[in-house]
Structure formats: structure tokens, C-alpha cells
């Protein structure tokens, strides 16, 4: 069970008097499984919300703290993911990419692209990886090969070694959590260059923006931390920049602003 849960639950039990929405929202958002569970819960018919909730923040606002803590209690019993230290780096990277994606969505301003969606999408984009890591011990090696593949799509490398790939797994999970359609489609297609590049692919514009924003966010994170370098930006970067209307000079500025954001969050 992820460490954030007992701590969060302790601080936000009904009647505990702790009303720090921002802190609690951050704690939940830092934990993919908890965020997943909360959004799924709020979007389930039991809560009777008329509009669907797209982010942890909205979930908190819709439910209120007491209901949230009840939801969290239920979720903590049905954790979808393992939360051992082995996955800690993965959660951390997902949370950082999510935060940078939200910021970037606000910066590039595209019709149909919501910062909340970009944030949520960043949290869930690679959740399929965790499932595959748990199921296939050798998946780490496949991931390594896929990350360093310069030509072919990431998911093509996965499908050589496995009966499925993390995009399909992630998209199925996202549907299971009742996430918005454009987020599910973005997860499913996030390694598909032609889907990003060509609107004829049938992928909604909002989904293509989500893919481009989080890919750029990941690149900014890798640039800032000089860590876990992958070939994805070489393959997808030019398409993402074209779609988002980012020139080389603007990217250099984004490196600086992103690095400052990352530093301030540490």
C-alpha cells in the first residue's frame, strides 16, 4: 500500500479538523493509485455528481473532505497497484510529469486543452507500466530496450516481448476509472507518431494536445534532471512542437522555466 495513504487518512478522517485542501490534494495527487481511486469513486454513480470529475482538485471540491476521506478509506482497501519502494521513482516521475504538463498546458494555450486534464493525463499516462512490471519480471529489460530504440515505436518493442503493451493496458484502466474519453484515447496513442502528427488519424485534437504536452513535459523534466534519458523525444519531439506551436527558442525558455518549477517543488 502506498505510504501516502495512512498518513493522509490520519490527517483527514471525518471530524479530524484538518481542512488543508491544498495539502491534501497534493498528497493524493502524488500517489497515482490514490488519485485513480478517488477520481473513479467520484465519477461512480454513487456520488451522484452531475458533471464528471477530471482531477483530484475537482474531486475534493465535489466531495468535500469528509466524503473524500471516506472514499479514500474504501480505496485504500482496494489498491489497484503495488506501492513498494521499487516503484517509488516511477510514482515520483509521474507526479512531476503531471505537474509540468498542467503548467505547460496553461502556457501553450490551445483550444480544447485543459490544464486539469493535462495533469490527470500525466498521472495516468504510464500506469500500464506498473501493471506489466508486476506481471512480467523481465519487463524491465523490455522497457530498457524500448527506451533506447531510435527508430521503431516504443510499443512495437513491447509487443515483440509481451502479448500486449502499456498503452493498451493504461487505456483499459483509464476507462475502468471512467476517465474522460480524450484522456483514454491519449493514453492509448501516446507512442504513435502518426496519431499525433495527422489529424486524419481520427484522434481528437484534445487527445493529440495531451500527448504532445506530456511528452514535452517529460522532455523538460529529463533536460532539467539529466536523468533517465529516452529516445522518445527524438522520435516524437518535432511532431509535438509543431502541434503545440513551440519554436526552438521558446523551448529553450521552457527548459529554464520548467527547471525553476521543478526546483521549487523539491
Amino acid at each position: 500500500m502506498p505510504r501516502a495513504i495512512p498518513e493522509f487518512y490520519l490527517h483527514s478522517r471525518p471530524g479530524s479538523g484538518n481542512l488543508n485542501f491544498k495539502l491534501i490534494g497534493e498528497q493524493i495527487s502524488a500517489d497515482v493509485s490514490l488519485a485513480a481511486g478517488l477520481i473513479k469513486t467520484v465519477n461512480s454513480p454513487y456520488f451522484g455528481c452531475r458533471s464528471r470529475c477530471r482531477s483530484v482538485h475537482e474531486a475534493l471540491l465535489m466531495l468535500g473532505l469528509d466524503a473524500t476521506s471516506r472514499a479514500i478509506a474504501a480505496i485504500s482497501l482496494r489498491q489497484a497497484f503495488p506501492g513498494s519502494a521499487h516503484y517509488e521513482r516511477f510514482w515520483q516521475a509521474s507526479a512531476q510529469i503531471a505537474a509540468l504538463s498542467g503548467w505547460l498546458a496553461q502556457t501553450v494555450r490551445k483550444a480544447g486543452l485543459r490544464a486539469d486534464d493535462a495533469y490527470t493525463y500525466g498521472l495516468f499516462r504510464d500506469c500500464g507500466i506498473v501493471i506489466l512490471l508486476r506481471r512480467f519480471p523481465d519487463y524491465v529489460k523490455t522497457l530498457d530496450r524500448a527506451n533506447h530504440e531510435a527508430e521503431r515505436a516504443f510499443t512495437d518493442i513491447e509487443i515483440e516481448a509481451l502479448p500486449t503493451n502499456h498503452s493498451v493496458v493504461g487505456a483499459l484502466l483509464a476507462q475502468n476509472w471512467w476517465l474522460p474519453e480524450e484522456i483514454c484515447l491519449a493514453i492509448r496513442n501516446h507512442h504513435d507518431r502518426s496519431a499525433i502528427e495527422h489529424f486524419e488519424s481520427g484522434l481528437p485534437a484534445a487527445s493529440r494536445y495531451l500527448v504532445a504536452v506530456s511528452q514535452t513535459a517529460e522532455h523538460i523534466l529529463q533536460h532539467a534532471t539529466a536523468g533517465s534519458y529516452t529516445e522518445e523525444w527524438q522520435k516524437l519531439g518535432p511532431s509535438c512542437m509543431r502541434l503545440l506551436g513551440i519554436e526552438d527558442a521558446a523551448l529553450a525558455e521552457l527548459y529554464d522555466e520548467g527547471a525553476a518549477l521543478i526546483r521549487s517543488s523539491q
Binding site: 506481471r135 502479448p163 500486449t164 483499459l172
Partner: peptide, 8 residues
């Protein structure tokens, strides 16, 4: 892939 993803 979707069938396998569901099983997994």
C-alpha cells in the same frame, strides 16, 4: 493486446 491487457 486488449484481451491480454484485460487478463493481466
Amino acid at each position: 493486446p486488449a484481451l491480454q491487457a484485460a487478463l493481466i
